[in-house]
Design a protein around this nucleic acid. Structure first.
Lengths: 107, 107
DNA sequence: AGGCTATTTCCATGAACATCGAAATAGCCT
DNA sequence: AGGCTATTTCGATGTTCATGGAAATAGCCT
């Protein structure tokens, strides 16, 4: 993980439509969801959805798997974990945070 | 926390310059860092830095405190925690994730 | 092959973003 | 007030993004 990848992933999530889309996939769990199903659920034009989905895939946050004419979309949980870890990673590293109220591990 | 706020915060972090800036503040810990200090450390024009900082403040991820002519910037840790929580929040909610490999609480 | 469904790519348009120099402001100190 | 430092706002420019209709592609099925 590095700044380039992390910022690209955060940017991908930093749009209401895409964040909603991503959360829909996160909620869907490991089974994933076909594109068409997502489209119905979120009620948006197919081309718009496809663009956003492409961004999420390019960022490595979503994986797609073909199943006949449908494409199943899955949230890439490990990627999300890595991203979350990166954000809290070196918290207070320049200060050596020793107080209990605010550490990176808990909460 | 809601989609609007979360996506705004993620968007704020979704830029390499701003993410670097934010991480610098996260590393700095509760003591914070004056704008000028950040500027020297990241070596960027003051106006550019100011714009990015404003975005982070507007997103609620950074707090600023005046100290004489300097402005001390702090990472808002609670906001980060809330955001991170939001991302993993309803993981698999539509599927009832019961397997051990992938839950929202751990890791 | 022909038809059908699912999804993507092409294209265009308006909006928002990133960057940074120059000028303006805020706050101290004498 | 005058001068000094720290930081922000203004203004301008080029870039990227968001959106969605229309056309193209992918993959099945008969």
């Amino acid at each position: 993980m590095n700044i380039e990848i992390a910022s690209r992933q955060l940017e991908a999530l930093g749009n209401p439509t895409r964040l909603t889309l991503y959360r829909t996939l996160v909620r869907a769990g490991r089974g994933g969801l076909p594109v068409g199903h997502v489209q119905e659920r979120l009620d948006m034009p197919a081309s718009t959805l496809s663009h956003h989905l492409k961004r999420l895939v390019a960022a490595g946050l979503v994986r797609q798997e073909r199943a006949g004419t449908s494409l199943i979309c899955h949230a890439e949980y490990p990627a999300m974990d890595a991203l979350l870890g990166f954000l809290t990673d070196e918290c207070c590293a320049d200060e050596c945070c020793a107080e209990e109220g605010r550490n990176r591990g808990d909460a």
